[in-house]
């Protein structure tokens, strides 16, 4: 199963290496990983997409929690959330196809961020399904390069990741 996990960490040297090292040493998968500073510059949030059964996920969450620099781990499995990803895609665009791609981009509320005589570079944000749909429509034109951020996620409603401390309350 695919899971999105948010990890609140200290914004310190070596923390990314600790998290990445933990995944590789224990044979956990990372599908994508996205990390940047939060409003509080001493903290960062990592959004990790991983796959594994319940058993593996439980270990991933516990092992992440065990790292000294990790302050909180949220598994979005139990939380209502919003997830978005951004992609930059360079697609072959010549002659009459240019118009068609432009329309498609507008329909998906994307933006053309770079133009060359033979290509468009399109930026688009959205959830997984939207991006999949857009890419499948774009494919026949000839995708030359694709760069994606991997999703970032945030919980819906009033809740924030820094809200309640969960570490050390894992009984039962």
């Amino acid at each position: 199963m695919r899971h999105i996990i948010s990890v609140l960490v200290e914004n310190e040297f070596g923390v990314l290496a600790r998290v990445a090292g933990l995944f590789s040493a224990r044979g956990f998968n990372i599908e994508s990983l996205c990390v940047a500073e939060t409003l509080d510059p001493t903290l960062s949030i990592m959004t990790i997409v991983t796959t594994g059964n319940e058993f593996i996920l439980e270990q991933i969450l516990k092992q992440l929690n065990k790292l000294i620099n990790v302050i909180k781990v949220v598994d979005f499995k139990d939380v209502d959330y919003v997830a978005r990803e951004m992609i930059l895609v360079k697609v072959a665009a010549e002659n009459e196809k240019r118009e068609e791609i432009l329309r498609l981009t507008e329909i998906f509320r994307g933006q053309i961020v770079d133009v060359s005589p033979k290509t468009y570079t399109i930026m688009i944000t959205g959830d997984e399904e939207k991006i999949r749909a857009f890419l499948s429509l774009l494919k026949p034109f000839g995708i030359k390069e694709l760069v994606r951020t991997g999703p970032i996620a945030i919980s819906r409603g009033d809740k924030t990741i820094k809200g309640k401390k969960e570490k050390g309350e894992e009984n039962g």
Partner: peptide
Amino acid sequence: FIRGYQPN
């Protein structure tokens, strides 16, 4: 005090 480390 280490904010990410409070063993139970």
